[in-house]
C-alpha cells in the first residue's frame, strides 16, 4: 500500500471522526445545560434521577455505554438496529459528554454573584433576558478553560467508536496496521489527533482572549 493510498483511506476515516466530533459538540453542549437545570429541578424525583444519570455517565466506561446504546434497543425491545450505528454513537457520546458539561456549567453558574441576578431583577429584566444577556455570557467566560479540556478529550475519545465498528480514523489505522504489518498508520493517526487538538486549543484560546476585556 502506498503512502498516498494509506492517507486517502484514512482520510475517509478522518471525515467520520470529524462527524462524530462536531455532532457530539452540537448536541452535548445544549444538552448539558438541560441536564444542569434538571439536576436543580424543584421536583425531588427529577433531581434524584438526574443525579443517578450523571453518576452512571461519569462512573462507567464510555465504551460500555456505546455498546449499551447500540445493542440495548435490540436486547430490551427486540428492535431492528440496522443503520443505527452512527446515531447510537452520537447518542452515546452526547449523553456522556452532556453529563460532564452539566457539572462544568453548574460550577460556572456558582461563580456568578447573587448581586448580578438582583441587579437584573431590579432593573426589570425578564427571566430569559437575565439568563441570556447577563448571566450566560459571564458563565461562558468562567467555564471556557474546563470546556476546552473536555473538548480535547473528546477529540481523542472519538476513537472509541471502533467499539461499534464505525470506521472512523483510528479503526482504519488499526486495520491498515494489521494488513501492512506497519506502524505508519499509528504515526499518521497521532499526527492527526495532535493537529486537531492544536486547532481546538488555538480556537479556544482565541475565544478566551476575545473575552479577556473584562474580569
Amino acid at each position: 500500500m502506498t503512502l498516498s493510498t494509506m492517507l486517502s483511506t484514512m482520510g475517509a476515516g478522518m471525515l467520520r471522526t470529524c462527524a462524530i466530533f462536531f455532532l457530539t459538540i452540537l448536541f452535548s453542549l445544549p444538552l448539558g445545560m438541560v441536564v444542569m437545570f434538571l439536576r436543580q429541578s424543584r421536583f425531588g424525583i427529577v433531581r434524584v434521577i438526574t443525579k443517578i444519570y450523571i453518576a452512571i455517565m461519569r462512573g462507567t466506561p464510555l465504551m460500555l455505554q456505546l455498546l449499551m446504546w447500540y445493542f440495548g434497543p435490540y436486547y430490551l425491545f427486540g428492535m431492528n438496529i440496522r443503520g443505527y450505528r452512527l446515531p447510537a454513537i452520537i447518542i452515546g457520546f452526547s449523553m456522556n459528554y452532556a453529563a460532564y458539561f452539566a457539572e462544568i456549567y453548574r460550577g460556572g453558574f456558582e461563580t456568578i454573584p447573587k448581586g448580578q441576578y438582583e441587579a437584573a431583577e431590579v432593573l426589570g429584566y425578564s427571566g430569559p433576558q437575565t439568563f441570556f444577556k447577563i448571566i450566560l455570557p459571564q458563565v461562558i467566560k468562567a467555564i471556557l478553560p474546563s470546556v476546552t479540556n473536555e473538548v480535547i478529550t473528546l477529540v481523542k475519545d472519538t476513537s472509541l467508536a471502533f467499539t461499534l465498528a464505525y470506521n472512523e480514523m483510528f479503526s482504519i489505522a488499526k486495520q491498515i496496521a494489521a494488513s501492512q504489518t506497519s506502524f505508519m498508520p499509528f504515526v499518521i493517526a497521532g499526527v492527526f489527533y495532535f493537529i486537531a487538538n492544536y486547532a481546538v486549543a488555538f480556537g479556544m484560546e482565541r475565544i478566551e482572549k476575545a473575552l479577556d476585556y473584562y474580569r
Partner: peptide
Amino acid sequence: YSYLQDDG
C-alpha cells in the same frame, strides 16, 4: 481472511 487491501 478479511482485511484492508492495498488499494484501501
